[in-house]
Nucleic acid binder design. Structure first.
Lengths: 135, 135
DNA sequence: GTATTTGCAAATGATTTGCAGTGCT
DNA sequence: AGCACTGCAAATCATTTGCAAATAC
C-alpha cells in the first residue's frame, strides 16, 4: 500500500510521522492510541501524544481512518475499508475482522426503518476457538 | 416494570437513586450520562455525578444495564435486552432500536469464525426518513 | 514564502477514588 | 449491627489547546 498517495487522496500533507502511523495501523490491523504511541516512539522517539491525537483526528475526519468503538476496551483505529464485522474475544482480547456479506442485513435494516444508511459499527463478542478449549 | 425486583435479581441493593435511574432509563429508552444527570437532579437535587457513575458501573457489571458505544457521540445506556440493532441519524441524532431477526447473522458469524458469541454492539448510521426529506 | 505540522507545556474534560456520614436489609 | 451506598472533594486519566520552532509544498 502506498501511504503517500493515500494521504494525498484524503487531502492530508505527507509527514514522516503520518507515514509511520499508517504503516503501523496497516501491519497491526487494529490499534489503540496507547499501543500506537508505544510503537511509534521506536521510530520517532520525540513524537508527542498531542501530535498523535491531532493526526488521528485529522485522518478520521477525512475518512482515511475509522474509529471502532468497542465495549469495555479502548477504541481501536483501522484504515477505512468496506463495512465488516469485528469480533472480540472476551478472554484473550483478540480482535479480528470477519468478512461476511452484510448486504442482507443492511438492506433489511434500511427497508424496515426507511433510513438511508452510510456507516456501520458492528462488534460481536464471545470466546475465540482457542479460549473455548482452555476454559 | 418492577425496578425493585430487577435490582434484587441482579444482586444490587435497592436505593431511591437507583430506582430513579432505572425509571429514567426505561422511559427514555437510551440515555447518556449527561442527560441522566440533568434529569435525575430534578428528583434528587443533591445527587452527585460520582454516585451516578458508581451506580451505572455497578449495573453494567451486573448486566442489568448495557453500555452502547456509538461513533462520534457519548455512550448511551439502556436496560439490557436481547441483541438488536441501533440506528443513529447523523443529522438529527435520533437514536432508536430496530428489532430485526439477528440469528442469521449471528449464526453465520459464529460458524465462519468458530467463536462462541455472547454479546453484540451493532450501530448503523445514516439519515432518518425525516432528515432525508429536509436535506 | 506561506501555511501546516510538530512537540512541549498547560488547560480542559471525563471518570474514579477516598472518606465520613447515612441508609438498607 | 454490619455492610453497602451517598455525596463531597480531591486525584487520576484522557484528550485538547496555544504557541514557538521546524517542515511541507
Amino acid at each position: 500500500m502506498n501511504y503517500e498517495t493515500l494521504l494525498r487522496e484524503h487531502h492530508l500533507k505527507v509527514t514522516p510521522q503520518r507515514l509511520g502511523i499508517l504503516s503501523l495501523m496497516h501491519t497491526m490491523g487494529h490499534i489503540n492510541i496507547e499501543e500506537l504511541y508505544a510503537q511509534i516512539k521506536e521510530q520517532f522517539s520525540s513524537i508527542s501524544l498531542a501530535t498523535l491525537y491531532k493526526n488521528i483526528n485529522a485522518m478520521v475526519e477525512n475518512k482515511l481512518v475509522t474509529e471502532v468503538k468497542v465495549p469495555n476496551v479502548k477504541s481501536k483505529y483501522e484504515i477505512t475499508k468496506e463495512p465488516h464485522i469485528h469480533l472480540l474475544c472476551s478472554a484473550c482480547s483478540e480482535f479480528i475482522d470477519l468478512d461476511l456479506d452484510l448486504h442482507p442485513l443492511l438492506d433489511a435494516a434500511s427497508s424496515k426503518s426507511h433510513y438511508e444508511l452510510h456507516g456501520s459499527c458492528i462488534v460481536l463478542s464471545g470466546l475465540c476457538e482457542k479460549c473455548q478449549k482452555e476454559l
